[in-house]
Amino acid sequence: MNEEIKLTADLFEPLSEDEKNHEFIAAQSKTYFQDAWGRFKKNKMALIGLAFLSVMVILAILVPMFSPFEYDGMDLTALNEMPSLTHPMGTDKFGRDIFVRVMYGARISLSIGFSSAFICLVIGVVYGGIAGYVGGKTEMIMMRIVDILYSLPNLLIVILIMLIFGSNVISILIGICITAWIGMARLVRTQVLTLKEQEFALAAYVLGASRSRILFKHLVINCMGPIIVNVTMLVPSAIFTEAFLSFIGIGISAPAASWGTLANEARTLIESNPIQIIWPVLSICLTMLSLNFIGDGVSDAFDPKKK
């Protein structure tokens, strides 16, 4: 069959320059995060949320530093004042500047939100990652511990911790984090369970990579998308929990201020000076709203199906 085909030199011609380069990749090489940022940018609401949050963070840092008023500086000559040029949000029943107090509250509320999300991220990823990767009995025991923790009444634990360690930022952080990392751990575990059977993980194993290298350099990196989405959802829920605790009076206590504390203080004056409660509540609402928009944007940005 093959003998019938006669091959002569003139049947062949050299490849043109064009054809030689046809495997050249013209597109800019984009990392995963650049790609996700590109998609995030297209979401207007998420961008507005991000802008609002950035302004809030900057104000929270700068206003208490440069304002002539202290967050706990009382002025008995200016009680319950309406907003004016000197006091943009007015003063409270002790003559303290509400604008400075709201921004000081932003410091506490936001730092509790972000640091508890960070703590949950670290604990959840390590715990869930180990449980998922090691598997077997270890996993069984680790996940049952998680189930037990999850079944405890969250609020009760927080209140007990506040009773033992006192009402301060650290005990609120412990109280929030003690259960909030569970969602992250479960998420990472399921992701790692599916990823560890994939060939790239097996390849790393055959190459002789150590367990921690496979877990963190190969598996966790590949579930970064869902992890980040989860983190952006943790921040608002932590802020909300803190505000709630402070509002019912077991969180941050006066003269220190978080948004919940401020709302609680203003609550007593809601009939005579209703404007005072608007500022902390508005701050909570707008921050929560922008965090949720950011969360939505992030989860869309990391969803490969929306590419």
């Binding site: 994939q198 060939e199 790239f200 097996l202 390849a203 790393a204 055959v206 190459l207 990196i221």
Partner: peptide
């Protein structure tokens, strides 16, 4: 042993770490 005995996998889409 790991250095001397290696494996090439079936699915070239799954055997490389995408990140």
């Amino acid at each position: 042993f790991r250095k001397e005995v290696q494996m090439i996998f079936q699915d070239p889409y799954a055997s490389l770490n995408a990140r």
